[in-house]
Simulated scan of single mutants.
Amino acid sequence: MSKASETAPSNLADIDSSAWSELETAAVSQQSGFRYVNLCSVDAEAKPQARMVVLRGADRSSRVLEFHTDTRSPKWLELSANPHVTVLGFCAQTRLQFRLQGMVELHGSGSDLAKAAWVRLPTWSRMTYSGGPPGDERAFEAINESVPSRLADEAEGEAHFGLLIFRVRMLDWFQLRRQDNRRALFTYDETGALAACRWLNP
Results as ranks from 00 to 15, higher is better:
V53N: 01
V85D: 12
A27Q: 01
R169V: 13
D16H: 14
T128G: 00
E158R: 11
S73D: 03
R56H: 11
Q97N: 07
P74L: 03
Y188F: 12
V37M: 15
L200R: 13
R169E: 14
D43V: 06
C197L: 08
R150Q: 10
A196D: 14
T123M: 06
L100F: 11
F174N: 00
E156M: 10
L185V: 09
M103G: 04
L23Q: 06
M103A: 12
D172N: 11
T191W: 10
L163V: 13
E158S: 12
V168C: 07
G108R: 00
E22K: 11
Q97T: 13
A81S: 15
M52A: 10
A8M: 11
R177L: 13
A44N: 08
C40I: 10
A81W: 07
N144Q: 07
S17K: 15
S73Q: 04
D180R: 15
L194P: 08
S18K: 11
T71L: 12
L171N: 03
L96G: 05
K47V: 09
V28Y: 14
E22D: 15
A8R: 14
R72M: 05
A27L: 13
D189T: 07
R51F: 09
L79H: 07
G157H: 03
R72W: 13
L100M: 15
A19R: 04
V28E: 15
L88G: 09
H68L: 09
V104P: 04
L39S: 08
R183N: 11
P74H: 01
S10L: 14
S29W: 01
L200D: 14
H107R: 11
P148F: 11
V87A: 02
R198P: 01
R35E: 07
L79P: 03
M1K: 13
A8E: 13
I165T: 07
E6T: 04
I165P: 02
A155L: 09
R72N: 12
D43Y: 03
S62Y: 06
V37Q: 07
F34S: 02
V53C: 01
V85R: 10
L55G: 06
T7P: 06
L65F: 05
H160E: 08
G108C: 00
P133I: 00
A155D: 10
R99A: 12
D189W: 09
